[in-house]
Amino acid sequence: MAVQIKICGIREDRALEAVIEAKADFGGFIFHQSSPRNLTISEASRLTALAEDRIQRVGLMVNPNDDFLCELAAHASLDAVQLQGSESPERVGQIRELLGVRAWKAIAVASREDILRAEAYADTADFILFDAKTPPGALPGGMGLRFDWNLLKGLDVGLPWGLAGGLNADNVAEAIRLTRTPLVDVCSGTEAAPGIKDVDKIAAFCKAAREA
């Protein structure tokens, strides 16, 4: 099967159209106030409506509370939620039930022990995303950092999974060949500046991933 592609950090109509034109499988929308890619619920409502039936929509959140989740669900349509914080397996299950969409759990990786943490989510998450562990106090993703991809060799955590962290058009083919990842997720590697997508980088990334 061809590798699936997720482009995260979409904030503009122009970027969304470029992601769809490049035939990515998932578009990512970030809800985290500290991020330069943060969306308001009003912005998300418009973008997710524009994306409906054209690309699968994934909302990235960090330890969201129920009030926010209910407000978001009332105004914006998502196909999956990506939980990027310290959510426990039990909390992931609660959020999946509350929103009625697929739950992705991001695992911050610096060692093999981090990867093995994914097994705890086998009963409550639908998908695991292995991302690079960022420094304490930094954003939980979107910083262009990568981890040792060799840690994923021979991986079997009992769930579908994907790779994020430091990917770009120049290294995504190597990442796919080395890890055999079913999905690649990119954010900063398709930007001209934090929060500003580059149409050419989006097209180049998707082409490189498809041809790997």
Rank of each mutant, 00 (worst) to 15 (best):
M1Q: 02
K6P: 05
I7A: 05
G9W: 07
G9R: 08
I10G: 07
R11L: 04
R11H: 08
D13M: 11
R14L: 12
L16H: 11
E17Q: 15
I20L: 11
K23P: 03
A24K: 10
F26H: 06
F29E: 11
F31A: 11
Q33P: 06
P36C: 11
I41M: 07
T48M: 08
Q56T: 12
G59V: 09
P64V: 09
D67S: 15
D67A: 15
C70M: 14
L72R: 12
A73R: 15
G85K: 08
G85Y: 07
E87Q: 04
S88E: 06
E90Q: 14
V92P: 02
V92R: 05
R96A: 13
E97R: 15
L98N: 06
A106V: 08
I107Q: 01
A108T: 03
V109Q: 10
A110E: 14
D114P: 02
D114W: 00
E119D: 07
A122Y: 00
D123E: 14
T124A: 04
F127G: 01
D131Q: 02
D131V: 01
M143S: 14
G144S: 09
L145R: 14
N150Y: 00
L152A: 04
L155I: 11
L155W: 00
L155N: 00
D156R: 13
V157K: 07
G158E: 06
W161D: 02
L163W: 08
A164Y: 00
G165S: 05
N168L: 05
A169C: 05
A173S: 15
E174N: 09
I176C: 03
P182Q: 03
P182H: 03
V184T: 03
V184Q: 02
S188Y: 10
A192Y: 04
I196L: 14
K197C: 07
K197Q: 13
I202H: 09
A208P: 04
A212V: 01
